[in-house]
């Protein structure tokens, strides 16, 4: 649909911005990404997110943030972006083999 439709109704020229939605299910837990909503502004996004994502007491707190404000790493660059992790097994506790008597550390 476009703005010059003959119906006489003014249709929006642009898509409303997209907001990513994060829900905290319980006090003490992190907010977790659950999805996104389109909304005309942040206040509205919060209400739409409530209606869409928390209809069954899934949350006690919601964050919304404009999707365009999220800077993300590229999965295609994953290999070189996270590369230094691969060759450092000594960062893991299991790398240190201790005798059974003291292995509960």
């Amino acid at each position: 649909m476009s703005a010059n439709q003959p119906s006489g109704q003014q249709m929006p020229r642009h898509h409303m911005p997209l907001f990513e939605v994060f829900v905290r299910s319980k006090r003490g837990l992190d907010h977790t990404h659950v999805g996104s909503v389109h909304a005309e502004d942040a206040e509205q996004a919060l209400e739409y997110a409530r209606d869409v994502y928390t209809r069954r007491s899934e949350g006690i707190s919601v964050w919304v943030v404009r999707s365009s404000d999220i800077v993300a790493s590229q999965e295609s660059d994953q290999h070189c972006f996270f590369d230094p992790n691969d060759d450092k097994p000594y960062r893991h506790a299991a790398f240190y083999q201790l005798p059974d008597e003291v292995d509960n550390m």
Partner: peptide
Amino acid sequence: RAMVRICKEESFHQRQGYDIML
């Protein structure tokens, strides 16, 4: 939550120290 993250990472610290002592 910071403590949970830290404890998860910290176990290797103690084990490498004990490994040196051993």
